[in-house]
Amino acid sequence: MNVFRLTGDLSHLAAIIILLLKIWKSRSCAGISGKSQILFAIVFTTRYLDLLTSFISIYNTSMKVIYIGCAYATVYLIYMKFRATYDGNHDSFRVEFLVVPVGGLAVLVNHDFSFLEILWTFSIYLESVAILPQLFMISKTGEAETITTHYLFCLGLYRALYLLNWIWRFYFESFFDMIAIVAGVVQTVLYCDFFYLYITKVLKGKKLSLPA
């Protein structure tokens, strides 16, 4: 464990909690892409099946359980409890255009052609593009609630911190995982224009509104 990975995990946890609290407190999922949340639930489910087969640490297991629990709770709030506030018209990204190519790539490019490894690879690739429906929805509505931008900032920051973690592990533990690193770079790059807007607008107290 290193400081980048720990702060990365905490940033990820913060994002998940911020979103869950936003929906729960405001009793509304306006501006939130349910499709992205479903993709994240799939990402966690396919990546954390090893919860059943291997134990790494209390930290590892508890974080995985929290991530999976919150992901499904968020999907439940969006599609069941507060579905009246779900903005389906603007959440129109065709996720099959993500899941199918990612699934194919996971079968073709992986470290080991085994069931768990292919699922893990699928989850890594899927996570790198899972935020696209959410970013697409914001570009369609032209704006985002400030709390949603904080959620996105923490979510984008987590994988950027993981990139630093992988540099650290390469240097100190001569370890690197090309699949995770390439997917992590793609994932972080997708947030760049959002990061720019967040830093130039939200941090200056303005509302995040895209040029319509």
Binding site: H12, Y67, H111, D112, A180
Partner: peptide, 10 residues
């Protein structure tokens, strides 16, 4: 990176 080693991350 072989299976198992990398999987200590979330």
């Amino acid at each position: 990176a072989k299976l198992g080693y990398f999987k200590d991350e979330l």
